[in-house]
């Protein structure tokens, strides 16, 4: 246990240094904020253009989309923060053979490396939300009583994300340098099917079924319920109580943890067998 903790701590420190020490702290803060805020502004302009040409405002739909998009920052950062560890150590820094041979848990090392990205993402989420509330009229009215539930939901949502990221890491043991495709594509699945930007009811029936099978859908719904309880947008999940969703997230995080172990170990086994642990695919 002590080794796990030490690995986690050192990997988290390493991840933070790799993410942030390429520039001055103020520039790193600006960098960390500009990307997600610009991402939010794409949606703001999409809404604005629709409102201009249709001469129709829909503040509830806008707030729904904005809050979902703010929390989606976690999805991109945590997933990328986990699965890119293997590819960057293998292809870019070419240090994977040394880390891999060290007497540590490589799984814990990856989780540690991802932690700094979670911290930076949390900062970006907070800035994006505050900006939306004060400058764009986004409707956020969280009560004090909802805070513990919100924190618990966030922790469980992040645990599920980490586990999914490790699953992808296990797959990327065997794939070529597809970091960007994965970084765009896998979050894209959640972007479309988890009711992040629009209610699930917009999707065809099979899409709704896919969305309901992904635990992140419930995480986004619960988060939005707690932060913006007055939106009144039908999400097709109103039959579930807050506590039921929380319980579902708890079960999902345990299940995904088991799945991540299985996929990671399987990917690792086949990569070792095929001699792919430290391959480089520089085209």
């Amino acid at each position: 246990m002590n080794t796990f903790w030490r690995t986690f701590k050192v990997a988290a420190w390493l991840g933070w240094e790799m993410d942030s020490n390429w520039t001055e702290p103020w520039l790193f803060i600006v960098y960390s904020v500009v990307k997600p805020v610009a991402g939010a502004f794409i949606l703001v302009l999409m809404y604005t253009v629709f409102a201009i040409i249709g001469s129709r405002q829909d503040p509830a739909a806008f707030s729904y989309m904005y809050v979902g998009n703010s929390f989606f920052i976690f999805v991109g950062s945590v997933l990328f923060g986990t699965f890119q560890v293997i590819q960057s150590d293998r292809e870019w820094y070419q240090t994977i053979r040394y880390v891999y041979m060290a007497p540590i848990s490589y799984y814990v090392y990856i989780v540690g490396r991802a932690v700094s990205k979670i911290g930076v993402a949390a900062f970006a989420v907070a800035i994006t939300l505050v900006f939306g509330v004060y400058f764009l009229g986004v409707q956020v009215h969280m009560t004090l009583a909802a805070v513990p539930l919100f924190l618990a939901a966030t922790a469980l949502g992040l645990a599920v994300l980490l586990a999914i990221g490790i699953c992808l890491g296990g797959v990327s043991f065997l794939t070529a340098k597809h970091t960007h495709g994965l970084a765009e594509g896998i979050p894209g699945i959640f972007y479309v099917f988890c009711g992040v930007l629009f209610p699930l009811s917009v999707l065809p029936d099979w899409g709704v079924a896919v969305g309901r099978a992904i635990p992140l859908t419930y995480w986004f719904d619960l988060t939005r319920r707690l932060l913006s309880p007055t939106l009144g947008v039908e999400t097709t999940l109103s039959g579930y109580s807050d506590l039921a969703i929380l319980a579902l997230l708890l079960v999902s995080s345990v299940a995904f943890f088991g799945l991540s172990l299985l996929i990671f170990k399987t990917g690792e086994y086949f990569a070792r067998k095929a001699g792919k642990i430290d391959m480089t695919t520089s085209y």
Binding site: M46, F50, A61, G185, G188, V192
Partner: peptide
């Protein structure tokens, strides 16, 4: 999929 998400936003509006 990412592009599909943006398509669905407009369809939702």
């Amino acid at each position: 999929l990412g592009i599909a998400a943006y398509v669905f936003i407009y369809q939702s509006f």
